[in-house]
Computed example of a mutant assay.
Amino acid sequence: MKSALLLVDIQNDFLPGGALAVAEGDAIVPIANRLMPVFDHVIASQDWHPPHHLSFAAEHDGFEPFQLTELDGLQQILWPVHCVQGTPGAGFASALDVAGIDHVVRKGSNPRIDSYSAFYDNDHRQATGLTEHLRERGIDALFVAGLAADVCVKFTALDALADGFDTTLIVDATRGVDMQEGDTDAAIQAMRQAGVRLADSHDLLAAG
């Protein structure tokens, strides 16, 4: 079985001090660096929003970040402005070993729809090409880590599973937003119940 590591959105705006900071988001960077050499192929996803993306609360008069609205028929959480194309916030964490990344998937560039998953936008209207990329390389097992567990990591892992990949979440290499207390734990359990395996980086490193 040929495996790949998928690092989800390890970008400056999701690290402490960033526009949409995930608590302890920086703690996963050294784990990701240690994991990369274990895998046949390493992919990183990158949130890549145009400046006026409609998922930003700033684009909606009277709304604050983390409030809900509707966008083209879909419920939408409104976010702080983050990961705008070409800005430092959209860049990968400076401590991330980008030389170990074989392929980058950018998502969220359509201003009218958000894209949590590294595979599809939130309404599955458009694919990123990641499934085809993996299949062309004979990869059938995907190990997912990154930010944030209860948003982009969750939807990425569920789409990977739905597209037929043997999918494993590396729990200690993932952190969550936890907008509501318990969101991260609930997301991990939802992934597990759907069929995503759970693993710890120490076990993978020992096996590798």
Rank of each mutant, 00 (worst) to 15 (best):
E132S: 06
D47Q: 04
Q85N: 13
H133I: 03
F63I: 05
S94L: 14
C83H: 13
H133M: 06
H103Y: 15
H49L: 06
Q180I: 06
T131E: 11
G18E: 14
E136M: 07
N12E: 13
A207V: 12
A145V: 13
P111E: 12
D9C: 08
L78M: 00
R197N: 13
G108S: 09
V98L: 09
Q76E: 10
R34T: 14
K154S: 00
Q180A: 05
D183A: 01
G18Y: 09
G108W: 14
A187I: 00
L74T: 10
T69P: 01
R197H: 14
D114F: 06
Q75N: 12
H133P: 01
D203E: 15
G73L: 02
M191L: 06
H103M: 02
G138Y: 12
I170Q: 10
T174I: 07
A21L: 09
V84K: 13
L54W: 09
W79V: 02
H52Q: 13
D102T: 12
N122F: 02
V29S: 07
G100F: 08
V144M: 07
T168M: 07
Y120G: 00
I101C: 05
G17Q: 13
V29E: 09
P51R: 06
A207D: 15
V38G: 14
D172L: 04
G62D: 15
M36S: 07
T69E: 03
A27I: 03
W48V: 08
S3Q: 15
L198F: 07
V104H: 13
W48L: 09
N33G: 07
G86S: 13
P50G: 05
L78D: 01
